[in-house]
Amino acid sequence: MAAAALEVAHHWLGGRVETVVIKTSGDKVQDRPLADIGGKALWTKELDAALVKGETHASVHSMKDVETERPAALCLAAMLPRADVRDRLIGAESIEALKHGAKVGTSSPRRAAQLLRLRPDLEIVIFRGNLGTRLAKLEAGEVDATLLAAAGLERLGQGSIGVPIPIDVMLPAPGQGAIGIECRSDDHETLSQLGRVNDHQTSAAVRAERAFARALGGSCHSPVGAYAAIKANEVYLRVEILSEDGKDRIADEARFRVGDDTKAEALAKSMLANAPASIRRLFAAG
Rank of each mutant, 00 (worst) to 15 (best):
L76F: 05
G38P: 06
D252E: 13
A113C: 11
D65M: 12
S243W: 04
T24Y: 01
I126C: 02
F127I: 03
D48S: 06
D31M: 01
V258H: 04
L153N: 04
R255D: 12
A4I: 07
V85Q: 02
D65L: 13
V21S: 10
A113F: 09
S270N: 15
R255C: 13
R82H: 07
M271W: 08
R128E: 14
V66C: 05
V235Q: 05
V163Y: 02
S278R: 13
I181K: 03
T202F: 11
A150W: 01
L6G: 09
A73N: 07
E69H: 13
A58S: 03
D252R: 13
A72R: 11
A72P: 01
E209V: 02
G26M: 09
L282K: 01
K263Q: 15
M63W: 04
A213Y: 01
E209W: 02
F212A: 04
G54T: 05
H57R: 07
D261V: 07
H57Q: 10
I250R: 10
L153R: 06
D84K: 04
A9S: 03
E18P: 10
A140W: 02
A145M: 08
A4P: 00
L6S: 01
F283E: 02
P81I: 00
K28I: 10
A2H: 00
S62W: 12
Q193L: 15
G246M: 04
Q30H: 12
R128F: 07
I90K: 03
S278C: 05
D186P: 00
I95V: 15
D199C: 11
A78N: 08
I165Y: 05
N198T: 08
A83E: 04
E55A: 12
R281K: 15
A213G: 02
A149K: 07
E139A: 13
D36W: 14
A213K: 08
P164R: 12
Q114G: 07
D199T: 08
P109S: 07
A178K: 05
S94Q: 07
G180N: 06
S160E: 15
G195S: 05
G159I: 04
E253F: 07
A268V: 07
G105W: 02
M79R: 09
I165H: 03
P109G: 04
R196D: 08
R281H: 14
P172A: 09
P33C: 10
R128A: 13
T44C: 12
V224K: 03
C75E: 12
A273D: 12
A275P: 07
E7W: 02
G26H: 08
S192H: 08
G162N: 09
A73V: 13
G259P: 08
V206K: 04
M271Y: 09
R249T: 11
A4W: 12
A226S: 13
P174E: 01
L115I: 11
I161L: 15
T262Y: 12
L237H: 06
R86T: 09
N198R: 08
I230T: 00
K247W: 00
G225D: 03
A149S: 15
L191I: 01
G217W: 11
